[in-house]
């Protein structure tokens, strides 16, 4: 460890610091000596006083006072010396910091020389060229859509969105306006009112208990369909659109012709329809077997 080829030399400021420290040591030693002398004079004064020699006791105390003053002086000198050494040591550190900063600056400058503004510009230009080239290739290969294409795509998307919104709006029914007369009509029949009442309560329920509008908007068409399934065969005034009728009448589903063309939709037509469905079943079975 530390077996370097050349022995590190002591610098001039090292020697200066050493001289200061040596002086400090001398003062320290002197202080120690003074301290013992002080103690000794104190003891002498006590002894003399005990022996009744007041004059010599006073002398010892005067000497002691003088030594104390000396001690105070050396204290001051010590502080001065310490300050001096600290200043030197601190300045040395400052010098080292300066050297470090200088070195850092030199390195920074060298690095800056390596990356001049012209070089950076050239590199950026080259990059831009490369990007342009890439774009060209993309267009040639057709991987990239032109701006017009993009605009068309955007337009189409907007159209679809509009349609969807419109469809949603048309689906949104205004049930409460038309439903009451239906209910009155049905109310003439004997067995239905209970069902309608139930349906009514069902129709109201989701609107009140479930505040979410999407839920109700979904429910309402369904409800209407259910109402049709109950009422449409018996009422003449109420003519729902065929699109709504299709999924509704399960009884008439097999023979839609009977259900829609029936001039007087009464219970007989209904039973007839169900009967005809029953008849049609074997036919279907025949078809299947063929």
């Amino acid at each position: 460890m530390g077996q370097g080829p050349s022995k590190p030399k002591a610098s001039a400021h090292d020697k200066a610091v050493f001289e200061l420290k040596k002086q400090r040591d001398v003062l320290r030693k002197y202080q120690k000596q003074l301290a013992t002398v002080l103690d000794r004079e104190h003891a002498i004064a006590k002894q003399c006083l005990a022996a009744g020699d007041k004059r010599r006791a006073l002398l010892a105390l005067r000497k002691k006072k003088y030594q104390e003053q000396l001690l105070a002086k050396t204290d001051k000198q010590l502080v001065t010396l310490e300050e001096m050494t600290s200043t030197i040591e601190y300045t040395v550190i400052e010098k080292e910091v300066m050297a470090g900063l200088q070195q850092g600056n030199a390195v920074l400058q060298a690095l800056h020389q390596e990356m001049s503004v012209e070089k950076v510009e050239a590199i950026l230009d080259e990059t831009a060229e490369a990007i342009a080239y890439q774009k060209e290739i993309e267009e040639l290969l057709g991987t990239k859509l032109s701006e017009e294409d993009e605009a068309e795509v955007e337009h189409e998307l907007a159209l679809i969105q509009e349609e969807a919104a419109l469809a949603l709006e048309t689906k949104m029914p205004s049930v409460p306006v038309t439903a009451p007369p239906v209910a009155e009509n049905v109310g003439v029949e004997e067995e239905v009112p209970a069902v309608v009442a139930v349906e009514k309560s069902k129709a109201k329920k989701p609107a009140s208990t479930l505040p979410r509008p999407c839920k109700t908007s979904n429910d309402k068409p369904k409800l209407r369909r259910r109402l049709h399934s109950q009422c449409s065969p018996r009422t003449t005034e109420f003519s729902p659109p065929p699109s709504l009728l299709v999924p509704v009448a399960t009884a008439a589903a097999a023979v839609p012709d009977h259900a829609s063309s029936g001039s007087s939709p009464t219970r007989t037509t209904r039973s007839r329809a169900s009967r005809s469905r029953r008849c049609s079943l074997p036919r279907l079975a025949n078809k299947k077997s063929i």
Binding site: Q3, D14, K15, K21
Partner: peptide, 22 residues
């Protein structure tokens, strides 16, 4: 001898030795 100090003031008086410990 081990080069672990820098001798600043060699002296036969140990109190006056001056060195820097590396």
């Amino acid at each position: 001898h081990q080069r672990r100090i820098v001798m600043i003031n060699p002296s036969s008086n140990v109190d006056e030795l001056g060195f820097k410990i590396i």
